[in-house]
Amino acid sequence: MEKEPRLGIDFGRVIHGGPLAPGDADTVFLGGSFEEALASPATEGVYEVLPGLIAAFGGRAWIISKCGDRIQRRTLAWLDHHDFYGRIGLPRGNVRFCRKRADKAWHCEELGITHMIDDRLDVHRAIRGIVPYRYLFGPQEGPGWVRRIGDWAEAASISEDIPAGRTRPATPRSR
């Protein structure tokens, strides 16, 4: 039986602070004050495109981010401060964190992620045998087994990769 489509989205340099050139860091979010981090903007186009993608996936979407405790607290505060959950239709509990990029593979496997948007090629290498649809977000080029998505305007096309008839909302099945 085919899995229900499920979307995974990285936070740094995808939802927030990007896309940046390879090697660039989002210094305000990472190194600025807590107030500066909260005030920093979302990536251009995320509020216009991501709600439609989440709807196309029937609400089955998760933020999967690699960070330490300090950035995790900032990320959660930023999501609340910008009413991100309400604005894009992501359930509040659908945020996962890990300490190493390769550990995103574990989350993808556990959640049954079928489509993943991330700006790091090392993440895509780690999830290659787990997630069939992989999107490298930003200006960097990647190998043929990952699809480059330059920005959120291009990311709108991801909904075309959802198998036909699999976009219905997630609802509990009665037994």
Rank of each mutant, 00 (worst) to 15 (best):
residue 19 P to I: 02
residue 142 G to W: 01
residue 102 A to T: 13
residue 27 T to W: 04
residue 147 R to V: 12
residue 143 P to M: 02
residue 107 H to K: 08
residue 44 E to K: 06
residue 98 C to H: 09
residue 128 R to V: 03
residue 151 D to S: 02
residue 71 I to Y: 03
residue 104 K to N: 04
residue 7 L to Q: 00
residue 49 V to R: 05
residue 92 R to Y: 12
residue 142 G to M: 03
residue 89 G to D: 14
residue 23 G to K: 00
residue 110 E to A: 15
residue 4 E to V: 13
residue 4 E to P: 12
residue 131 V to P: 09
residue 1 M to E: 14
residue 159 S to P: 03
residue 157 S to Q: 12
residue 172 P to M: 13
residue 136 L to T: 02
residue 38 L to K: 09
residue 131 V to C: 13
residue 136 L to I: 02
residue 165 G to Y: 10
residue 103 D to L: 06
residue 139 P to D: 12
residue 19 P to A: 05
residue 86 G to D: 09
residue 103 D to A: 10
residue 99 R to G: 13
residue 153 A to T: 10
residue 143 P to C: 05
residue 66 K to T: 15
residue 144 G to I: 07
residue 144 G to F: 07
residue 70 R to A: 15
residue 95 V to Q: 05
residue 2 E to N: 13
residue 39 A to Y: 00
residue 44 E to M: 00
residue 20 L to C: 04
residue 138 G to F: 02
residue 112 G to T: 12
residue 145 W to Q: 05
residue 84 F to E: 04
residue 26 D to Y: 02
residue 152 W to V: 00
residue 148 R to E: 02
residue 115 H to A: 08
residue 93 G to C: 01
residue 99 R to P: 07
residue 158 I to Y: 07
residue 6 R to S: 11
residue 173 R to V: 14
residue 137 F to Y: 13
residue 144 G to A: 14
residue 54 I to S: 11
residue 8 G to N: 09
residue 161 D to N: 05
residue 17 G to N: 04
residue 76 L to A: 02
residue 27 T to N: 06
residue 16 H to A: 08
residue 68 G to Y: 06
residue 86 G to N: 06
residue 144 G to P: 10
residue 62 W to K: 06
residue 83 D to L: 12
residue 174 S to A: 14
residue 45 G to T: 03
residue 101 R to T: 06
residue 81 H to W: 13
residue 95 V to M: 07
residue 108 C to S: 11
residue 172 P to L: 14
residue 164 A to T: 14
residue 171 T to Y: 08
residue 149 I to E: 03
residue 133 Y to R: 14
residue 99 R to K: 14
residue 63 I to N: 01
residue 165 G to P: 11
residue 34 F to L: 05
residue 156 A to C: 08
residue 122 D to S: 15
residue 54 I to P: 08
residue 133 Y to I: 02
residue 48 E to T: 07
residue 120 R to D: 07
residue 1 M to F: 13
residue 60 R to F: 07
residue 85 Y to L: 10
residue 163 P to H: 13
residue 22 P to W: 01
residue 169 P to T: 12
residue 138 G to Y: 05
residue 10 D to K: 00
residue 86 G to F: 02
residue 108 C to M: 10
residue 139 P to V: 12
residue 114 T to P: 09
residue 154 E to W: 00
residue 18 G to M: 04
residue 122 D to Y: 11
residue 111 L to G: 06
residue 144 G to H: 12
residue 113 I to K: 03
residue 12 G to P: 03
residue 94 N to H: 15
residue 21 A to H: 04
residue 34 F to S: 03
residue 42 A to Q: 00
